[in-house]
Design a protein around this nucleic acid. Structure first.
Lengths: 330, 330
DNA sequence: GTGAAAGCGCTAACAA
DNA sequence: TTGTTAGCGCTTTCAC
């Protein structure tokens, strides 16, 4: 495998007997060059198997045609749809998506943005944990859009947390539940505050007591760790910050021999892969994540002056499966 | 958000009263410059909040310090560990991982490699579906390593398919099974051939009949689609190409009211996220995927002349869970 | 130890 | 319509 020197614009120009600028134009501004020369140049380029050097292209233009997408946890299935949607939309627009895993750490998040700032044309920040200031700072270097986080002066796409929490509370209320244990996610998560806040408000409205357990890591382990305390509150329903935690809780309950939904109901958020085949299948709130991914890219590529809503709120849908049922008479 | 002009090396040089080359050295070849000037330059750079332009750095050096990782399906949990491991190792070596989803399509795979060839320093190709020739072609442009595919002259890391299949057959044989239905994955997948071939050979050795069903897509839907035909063969055990298919099969069987493992046993490959909490928990073969990811990066970064095994074979482990049991008397 | 200058491969004014 | 040329921001010889 000898990685032979690549064919450059100069090679093509020499071979075709024209100037480099003509080759450049023939290839990227087809209409600004005579049809005959254009075809000739293209034929030569083809014959020589010329491929533009993207780095060299990027230096004058200042754009590598890349978008940086930073997610807190690339192994959280919730982000699949988001990534898929964003990747598809980005590619359709001629951009390559560079993915970064921040592990939910503001430090890593900042590290990524710093390293990528001069490389990518913009950032898609998924549930970023950084301080408002540091997000604003990123915004001064490159365009930024946020997913599930809102910040003045920065475009964002969020799923309707208030409505989602409302649907969950109403569903549980209708089943007779009057006490909920909430398995909290990371304390520095904007979504965590939204979900918990909305849940607590709606619960108060309908006369349901909410006990907050946590915070815990937004993973299966986090759910496993928190559910025992949830049970100890004698709540009849457990609402988890996300599906990963809910599934972790479900597993723990099964091992402890607690019947779901006979003894306790469990609800999650996100409708991730696995929520439909865990045991029992999980009642959860789904959001149109692929569309969210696409919208993020649209918002980023729209340009600062384009008329574009600073905030996009996407609707959510409660999916009732087998992990919730009527409250047992105690 | 006005994306103000970035501070360049020239700005620092002017401000520090030295030449740009001195600044460049002070920052990247610290020992080739006087300690006093070095500190002075660094202080100025710091004060001006100078950040090197990676694109400009890359043009002379020819390296963006990026690695391209192409996976057939970014939503297949099997790839998580691989990605995690590779990302960690790459970052440790100062590289950024660029992820691409090929959707298992040779065309998209080729598209990605072409577009990225001049940007990345090398490729990690996960279960690539392209022809041998096109993979070799990529190899002439950039260093390449393969995961779960072997090719002469190209470094690869593979999980031990023959051993994995052997363990599965032995396990089923010990439980009394004498007929297996194999739910095949994509026909153009190297791993598919390895797994099926090894399964068939070992089965023949111990007197088990294998019927091949498929090919099907390596997804839950693929498993769902194939399992009815598998059942029709009256086999007592179903072995799927991967866990995704096995879980899809499990769901279909549950809906049809077929008892697992009472009436039929089910086995998968990979031990993906979800294999432990599906219903019933899936017996499967696990491989050290994070390590595989790390080794891929090591192999890629080792350089063409470094003494490095062309092929690395990683061991696998059978995880017996509840989806397999003794054969029922018919 | 430091500076001047020649690229890296391409784009885009500007001239012709 | 085409060619000439000056960068883009940095690295890296080569002199001094």
């Amino acid at each position: 495998m000898d990685h032979t020197r690549a064919v450059t614009l100069h090679d093509v120009a020499r071979e075709a007997g024209v100037a480099v600028s003509t080759v450049s134009r023939a290839l990227s501004n087809p209409d600004r060059v005579n049809a005959r020369t254009r075809e000739h140049v293209r034929a030569v380029a083809q014959r020589l198997d010329y491929r533009p050097n993207r780095i060299a292209q990027a230096l004058p233009t200042g754009s590598m045609q890349m978008l940086g997408m930073l997610v807190p946890d690339i192994t959280n299935p919730h982000h699949f749809g988001l990534i898929r949607g964003a990747e598809a939309q980005a590619r359709a627009a001629g951009y390559t998506l560079v993915l970064g895993d921040t592990q939910g750490l503001p430090g890593l998040e900042a590290g990524h943005t710093q390293r990528l700032a001069s490389t990518v044309d913009g950032f898609l920040l998924v549930s970023p944990r950084g301080e408002d200031d540091s997000l604003h700072a990123v915004g001064t270097r490159r365009p930024v859009v946020l997913y599930n986080r809102e910040l003045d002066g920065v475009r964002s796409v969020v799923t309707d947390a208030a409505d989602a929490a409302g649907q969950v509370v109403d569903h549980l209320h209708a089943l007779g539940h009057r006490s909920i244990a909430y398995l909290a996610g990371p304390a520095d998560s904007w979504t965590e505050h939204q979900r918990h806040g909305a849940l607590a408000r709606r619960a108060a409205d309908v006369g349901i007591a909410v006990r907050r357990i946590g915070p815990h890591s937004p993973t299966m382990d986090g759910g496993t760790a928190g559910v025992d305390a949830a049970l100890a509150t004698r709540a009849t329903a457990v609402v988890a910050f996300n599906d990963l935690m809910a599934i972790g809780a479900l597993r723990r309950l099964e091992r402890r021999g607690v019947d779901v939904p006979g003894e306790v109901s469990v609800v999650g958020f996100d409708d991730i892969y696995g929520a439909d085949f865990c045991h029992p299948p999980l009642t959860t709130v789904a959001a149109p994540v692929e569309e969210a991914g696409r919208r993020l890219v649209d918002a980023l590529l729209a340009g600062p002056d384009a008329p574009f809503a600073e905030r996009t709120v996407l609707p959510t849908t409660l999916l009732v499966r087998d992990s919730t049922g009527p409250v047992a008479f105690g």
